[in-house]
Design a protein around this nucleic acid. Structure first.
Lengths: 169, 169
DNA sequence: ACCGTATGAATGAATG
DNA sequence: CATTCATTCATACGGT
């Protein structure tokens, strides 16, 4: 009963009833990451892992899973969206400061800002380590688990999430 | 001196404090479009431009900017929400009249209702020109400014059909 | 003063 | 990776 890998549909708490009081509705299927999960994800992202490999994704998923139900697809989507949004913000920010140099310096927290190249999870190396609060312990767990070393065991657990495009409507 | 093309927060002296006098962080004030701005936006939307490209968005923003502070993001969000809600209302209306055929005929004004799915800003062509009130002058301005003539470089997408991951390993 | 609605903003999920 | 859709959150605003 490997219910893990696929995109997880939130099924815990938060029951939603139809506006007319009809309960026939299929109670929301979108993953809502918990605050701690987001913290972990952002820590990882900020640590330089902006585009995790398949196994890294699985590892991260396993980590997050300890705090609540989540699937590989969710993690994958999260990083994809994060990169995209990061880049967008970066561009907008750039444009803004070209248009108005006075805005320079304010540079509010818009995200780490992924390296422009095809940074396929430049894992270790010159990762721009930023904040090191409580969530750091999770990162340690990660490194211990081998996220940084991609020491993937030859255990092919049929965890091939290959096609995740078949989500129930 | 165009100080911003990014999501604009209302800068018109609307500082907001929590009811208890507590300044709860980043008082995120949201953009409140002026009546004339909404008129322009709806005119454009009704003229068939339901999904403006990036440069069209910039042009529209510039237009609106003459009536008050606004950013590209605001315009982007506006069209996105307009499309979404237009569709949603259309759906609900449909559902309603399937459920209760007696409701047919009332067909209240629920909005333009984007004609089809992939209507990627079918700008000119057979745009369903509807109302031609005062706001039409703005539209003329728009067309003069070249909103309809997206002189955009050929967008070649990498479209490498990224499965889940494609690591160079 | 509260409450319900309209709507700007954010983000997960998908598609190309 | 870019763009889009759907759903949800947050809030400005009008009604009672």
């Amino acid at each position: 009963m490997e219910d893990s890998n696929r995109g997880h549909s939130n099924s815990s708490s938060l029951q939603r009833f139809a506006p007319n009081g009809n309960v026939t509705g299929p109670v929301r299927t979108r993953w809502t990451p918990k605050a701690e999960q987001i913290l972990i994800l952002e820590s990882i992202f900020n640590s330089g892992v902006v585009n995790p490999t398949k196994d890294e994704t699985a590892t991260i998923r396993r980590l997050l899973e300890q705090l609540g139900p989540v699937g590989d697809a969710n993690v994958f989507y999260w990083f994809q969206n994060r990169r995209s949004r990061s880049r967008r913000r970066q561009r907008q920010l750039q444009a803004s400061l070209v248009a108005d140099p006075r805005a320079a310096g304010v540079a509010q927290q818009v995200g780490g800002g992924v390296q422009s190249s095809s940074a396929s999870s430049s894992s270790s190396s010159a990762a721009n380590v930023m904040l090191m609060d409580d969530s750091a312990q999770y990162l340690f767990s990660v490194s211990r688990m081998g996220l940084m070393e991609s020491t993937q065991s030859p255990v092919v657990r049929s965890s091939d999430v290959s096609q995740l495009h078949h989500q129930p409507g």
